[in-house]
């Protein structure tokens, strides 16, 4: 077994084919690669296990839980998390689809890549920067619009007002999230649009379709499920985004659909960021429990998005 597999310098013509020992390098390398992959499985299992472990006291404790019970604590936060993410998605998806089409089918060929890069730059801005920008610039810029909405569309519950004087509303937070998920959805949508089989497109054009008709009949049907899953991946990202919301929102932990007033629901992620550094005792466990809830929700959303992609067979 331990004999060398072959002579270091094989004499041309006289060497013979080595038999016996296997080379160790292959086994070691393969083992390392497999171990690395397995480590990832363990890490994810560990994330779930440790979060559960540490949130367990929140369920069993006799101590006072903030705001009475776990449900009363996490419920409004959950509501706010979903509300902000939905606002982000409703704003970002149409724009992202538009940009995706613009870059894939409308922009001049030579400029398209550069323009795509500009959109990608949006993803390169750190979340803390978006947060401060949202709190300082965007909320100010939105003030006149909130005022107008409250005055003219106040009969719609969403805009019931009274309009926030600081502009730091859940709607502003949703807009910041929209800007943050925009490059993600755009990049995926663009790739899917570009994957439309050239044959389908040319078939439509050969029938005398205008560019828009070609997109409507060839590109959009092909890309529909891909765009849906891109939006869901964006949703997963918006649900978990922390700093932008933590910096923008003035939180009062209510459940309300009023998007432009001073009283806003918080989000789970932002709440953890704001409370955790000073939390102690069972409050820590309650925060971790809320983190677990967030983990489960984003897991489900991402899972659904992947499932849609896998089912439709479009490569995202």
């Amino acid at each position: 077994m331990s004999t060398p597999t072959r002579a270091p310098e094989r004499d041309p013509g006289r060497g013979s084919i080595a038999t016996g020992a296997k080379r160790p390098g292959d086994g070691i390398f393969r083992g390392t690669a497999t171990a690395a992959g397995t480590l990832i499985l363990l890490t994810l299992a560990a994330v779930a296990a440790f979060l559960m472990w540490q949130s367990l006291p929140a369920f069993t404790t006799d101590d006072e839980i903030p705001r009475g019970s776990l449900t009363a604590y996490i419920g409004p936060l959950l509501f706010g998390t979903v509300l902000a993410a939905v606002i982000a998605l409703v704003v970002a998806t149409p724009v992202a689809v538009g940009i995706g089409l613009f870059i894939s089918h409308f922009a001049p060929r030579r400029a398209a890549q550069g323009l795509g890069y500009l959109v990608d730059l949006l993803a390169a801005v750190p979340s803390i920067v978006y947060g401060i920008w949202g709190a300082v610039v965007l909320s100010q810029a939105m003030l006149p619009i909130y005022g107008w909405l409250a005055d003219n569309l106040g009969f719609i519950p969403l805009f019931a007002g009274p309009a926030s004087a600081s502009g730091r509303t859940i709607f502003t937070a949703g807009l910041v999230l929209a800007v943050m998920v925009l490059p993600i959805i755009t990049a995926l949508a663009r790739d899917i649009f570009l994957q439309t089989p050239r044959l389908h497109e040319e078939a439509a054009l050969a029938l005398g379709a205008t560019r828009w008709e070609m997109i409507r009949y060839a590109v959009l049907p092909y890309a529909r499920s891909g765009v849906v899953s891109a939006a869901m991946l964006g949703l997963g990202r918006a649900l978990g985004e922390t700093m932008a919301v933590a910096l923008v929102l003035s939180v009062s932990n209510v459940v309300t659909f009023n998007l432009i007033s001073n009283t806003n629901p918080g989000t789970i992620a932002a709440n953890i960021a704001l409370q955790f550094p000073e939390a102690a005792g069972v409050e820590t466990n309650v925060l971790i429990a809320s983190g677990l809830a967030l983990f489960v929700i984003t897991f489900l959303v991402n899972f659904a998005a992947r499932w849609i992609v896998a089912r439709s067979g479009v490569k995202a």
Binding site: T5, R6, R10, G15, S16, I17, A18, T19, G20, A21, K22, R23
Partner: peptide, 20 residues
């Protein structure tokens, strides 16, 4: 079989076969 050695013999190292 090459040179009296069956290339598919259990102990034969395929990597070494390809060097020949």
């Amino acid at each position: 079989v090459m040179d009296g050695q069956d290339l598919y013999d259990k102990d034969v190292d395929p990597v070494s076969v390809r060097q020949h």
